[in-house]
Design a protein around this nucleic acid. Structure first.
Length: 459
RNA sequence: GGCCCCAUCGUCUAGCGGUCUAGGACAUCGGCCUUUCACGCCGACGACACGGGUUCGAGUCCCGUUGGGGUCGCCA
């Protein structure tokens, strides 16, 4: 069997949204799984809407997802000479004809078809008309009038379309510029694409394209049409992958989630990128469309967060801290800080929020009003002062030693741990929630621990 | 409206004729753990859209109905 060659072919008219990312991912996975090539083609033949900025943004987002391509991207607009040559071949073969119909004529055809409850199709009235050099025209590709076009879709199964339902499509505008359904065929053939994996919105284009492949004498690739993602609100629909990155999602989590939407491997939910490559198979892609569930995506992100080493966690969290204006290096201390919060966070934004308290100056820590009012009451403040003193003489600043020191202090003061645990937490974090007491003190260090207790005692 | 595709818990899904009184995950609701919040663990709730066939036997195959989606551009 020849090597698999697949492509992702976005039009550079915006950012890479979730649906496009999933199409790219499935192509990439199929290439990596089979040892094939994953290629990129920028479909910028719509000059009105395409921008280089968008092409760059999409490339950046693909890179962030780890979906690397194997050859230089093909810029579709640069292939115009080849497209024109192919058109000329079809002209010579007599496979295309000039259509002089006006928009009004086409609209009238459409309305009549609707009124008669027929398929809206161009009726071929210009086929065979004599040339009229005074009128503008478009080139139409003549489809077979009978028979059917059949292909076995890798995802949808056998798709049969009666040829009478396939319209004679316009393949070149009146200015001579070629159109999508035509150039996509030429370029896929040129790039040696073996499997066209794309959104299901292209399903009805496929028989048209197959007819063009055949007319041009090109070998027809295999097709796989992915069900679309439902339930995307307008906001979600326009959100690019960059938005998920900013919200603190991990690249592997995003890939895991969108892969799992429409594809599965038994009951397995969490996949690393490597596992995805190993286990992905087009045969296990669902035919039915799925809806987005952000809560599950957060959960998956959390699972991936759990799987990170603490050093990696520190690296990932550091930029999010910087964005909050918290100065912290991705060093062992940040790693230790993240470790105390890892099970609590679903995103890196949450992680940054929840470890920030470690890195503010002791005197600059702000207390949540309700927490301070509830816990930093006069009697408790005395206890905190005493605890601070007791801890200042702990020689071995480790969790077991701290645990012993705290419970020793509780015995001495005749109180239960419960009575002082929450107040101490408020003293350390400014809030009622936070890491375990002893692990937190270890990361905070003796100086800050004592200073924060002392400060809380006089708050 | 024509054509095409799809149809299992609220959501993502397992299921590829008998092992299904339908399994897992998210969410929800209980409980355990516990110095907080979580994590983890245990449990509850909850689905084969409907109607006909085929078959000894159907969530699994066929047909119809209903519902959802796509498409019908001198966009891609």
């Amino acid at each position: 069997m020849t090597q698999v060659r697949v492509r992702f072919a976005p039009s550079p008219t915006g950012v890479l949204h979730l649906g496009g990312a999933r199409t790219a991912l499935f192509n990439w996975l199929w290439a990596r799984h089979t040892g094939g090539k994953f290629l990129l083609r920028i479909e910028d033949t719509d000059r009105e809407r395409s921008t280089e900025e968008s092409a760059r943004a999409i490339a950046d987002e693909l890179r962030w997802l780890g979906l690397d391509w194997d050859e230089d991207p093909v810029i579709q607009s640069s292939r115009l000479p080849e497209h024109i040559a192919a058109l000329e071949k079809l002209i010579q073969q007599g496979r295309v004809y000039k259509c002089y119909c006006t928009p009004q004529e086409r609209e009238a055809m459409r309305e009549q078809a609707l009124a008669e409850k027929r398929t809206v199709l161009y009726d071929g009235r210009c086929d065979g008309k004599p040339d009229d050099p005074t009128q503008p025209f478009v080139w139409r590709f003549r489809m077979p009038r009978s028979g059917e076009t059949v292909f076995d879709d890798l995802v949808m199964g056998r798709v049969v379309t009666p040829n009478a339902e396939i319209e004679d499509i316009v393949i070149a505008r009146s200015d001579g510029s070629p159109l999508y359904n035509f150039v996509v065929v030429i370029d896929d053939a040129f790039m040696g694409i073996t499997h066209v994996i794309r959104g299901k919105d292209h399903l009805t284009n496929t028989p048209k394209q197959i007819q063009i492949y055949q007319a041009l004498g090109l070998s027809v690739p295999q097709f796989g049409h992915l069900p679309l993602i439902l339930g995307l609100s307008k906001r979600l629909r326009s959100a690019g992958i960059g938005a998920y990155q900013e919200q603190g999602y991990l690249r592997d989590a995003v890939n895991n989630y969108i892969a799992r939407l429409g594809w599965s491997h038994g009951d397995k939910e969490i996949f690393s990128q490597a596992e995805l490559v190993e286990l992905f198979d087009l045969a296990n892609v669902n035919r039915s469309e799925g809806a987005l569930n952000l809560e599950k995506m957060e959960w998956i992100n959390q699972q991936h967060l759990q799987a990170c080493t603490k050093e990696r966690l520190a690296e990932l969290t550091q930029p999010f801290l910087a964005q909050k204006g918290v100065e912290a290096r991705a060093d062992a201390r940040l790693a230790a800080a993240c470790e105390t919060r890892r099970t609590k966070c679903r995103t890196l934004v949450e992680m940054a929020d929840s470890v920030a308290f470690y890195f503010v100056a002791d005197e600059a820590l702000t207390y949540e009003e309700a927490a301070a009012a509830k816990h930093l009451v006069p009697r408790v403040r005395e206890l905190l002062a005493g605890l601070g003193q007791a801890l200042s003489s702990v020689p071995d600043w480790s969790e077991p030693a701290l645990q012993a020191a705290v419970s020793g202090y509780c015995d001495l003061a005749g109180i239960k741990l419960k009575e002082i645990a929450q107040p101490a937490r408020v003293a350390f974090t400014g809030s009622e929630t936070g890491p375990g007491l002893y692990e937190m003190m270890v990361v905070l260090g003796k100086t800050s621990t004592v200073a924060r207790l002392e400060r809380a005692s006089r708050a």
